[in-house]
Simulated scan of single mutants.
Amino acid sequence: MMERPLTSTRGLTVRIRPLAALSIAALSAVLLAGCAGSAPGSTPAPTDTSAASDLCAVAVPEGDVAASISVSGEVGELPTVEFAAPLEFTTAERVVAVEGDGTQIADGDYVTYARVVYDAATGEQVQAAGFDDAPLPPQQVTIGSGADAYFGCATEGSRLVVITPESQSGGALVNVIDVLEVTPADAWCAATEPGDVFPTVEYSADGIPTVTIPEGDAPDGVQLEVLEEGDGATVEPGDTVTVNYTGVKWSDGSVFDSSYERGEPATFQTTGVVAGFKRALEGQKVGSKILVTMSPSCGYGEAGSSEHELAGETLVFALEIIEVTEQ
């Protein structure tokens, strides 16, 4: 999933999420199916301290080769892309083909986007995603993430053309990226109280939880119930936490992973898990028992947008925070 969802060296099926779906160091397999790019050359240093301006500064610089590529069609629809192959360039270039009039991306914001990729040497389309009914997992854009060089401080509704040169891990690429929606970091997958349809959990004499899924449609976003509030330290963003948990699929009620069953809690940073699990941890106290649901967009992505076995699943976790270490 994701940032990096639950991660542990022993059996945790909530696997490490690929870095940004648009990481320059390693382009997501979701889009490129084996093709990869490398750091797009040097990027300018930030010129001031505002989040948006920093993103503007670290974006790949404009260039004549990128500007020569013809892109037509409505933003959000698969574009028609024309260029004379092979394109010859040695450093990454970027142009804003269409400038949207929506919200500007700031450091930490989540971006919903669509993307089509071409082989710069042959002109052949490599892959396209996000333009139909299978949206890509939203990408968090932060300074230094790699995605910042692609998106920069673009505005919602923009169409970007980014070309990346040949590297040891893949050939030169032409990327056309549509910025469909921008969501502030503090609003993305923010936890709400449970609705009318919400799971229940019972604990055995040994403290092992059993989660029961109710009849009805799975809730959207992240819903959270504190079953028992602890009296320990509060988990802050970036802290390392140790938790026990059981993860259940809403679709069939089956357990897909459980540290209780393994007999060993898991330890990870809150910034290393999927958005829904992160929301379930930060702001809670050590000793707390929590029941949380998360829709696919806050977990491992929608079906068709990710190869992860839990893509498309609404997930339910019964978890207990054992320990926290400050960042």
Rank of each mutant, 00 (worst) to 15 (best):
E3L: 14
R4G: 02
T7H: 06
S8T: 12
R10I: 15
G11M: 13
G11P: 07
P18N: 09
L19A: 08
A20Q: 10
L27P: 02
L27T: 06
S28Y: 05
S28E: 09
V30E: 11
A33G: 09
A36T: 11
A39D: 03
A39W: 08
G41I: 02
P44W: 10
A45V: 11
A51G: 03
S53H: 07
D54M: 14
A57N: 04
V58K: 03
E62R: 12
I69G: 10
G76S: 06
E77Q: 15
L78C: 10
A84F: 01
A92Q: 04
R94Q: 01
V95P: 07
V98T: 08
V98Q: 04
Q104W: 04
I105N: 01
A106V: 05
D109R: 00
Y113C: 01
A114Y: 09
E124F: 06
Q127M: 14
A128T: 12
F131H: 13
A134W: 14
A134T: 15
P135R: 12
P137K: 05
P138T: 01
Q140I: 00
Q140P: 00
S145M: 01
A149S: 07
G152V: 00
C153H: 01
T155Q: 13
R159A: 09
L160V: 08
V161P: 10
V161D: 09
T164F: 08
S167V: 04
A172W: 09
V176T: 03
V179G: 01
V179A: 01
V182M: 04
T183P: 03
T183Q: 07
D186L: 10
A191K: 10
E193F: 05
D196R: 12
V201H: 00
E202H: 02
E202R: 11
A205W: 03
D206I: 01
G207W: 11
I208Y: 07
T210M: 04
P214I: 10
P219G: 07
L224T: 15
G230Q: 08
D239S: 15
V241G: 02
T242L: 04
V243E: 06
V243K: 02
N244G: 07
V248N: 11
K249I: 08
W250V: 13
W250P: 09
D252K: 00
S254R: 12
S258C: 02
S258W: 08
S259A: 14
G263W: 13
E264I: 14
A266R: 05
Q269P: 02
T270F: 02
V274D: 15
A275M: 11
G287E: 11
L291F: 05
M294L: 10
S297Y: 14
Y300N: 10
G301Y: 00
G301I: 03
E309M: 09
L310W: 06
E313W: 06
E313Y: 03
E313P: 07
L319M: 09
E320T: 09
I321T: 05
T325E: 11
E326M: 09
E326D: 13
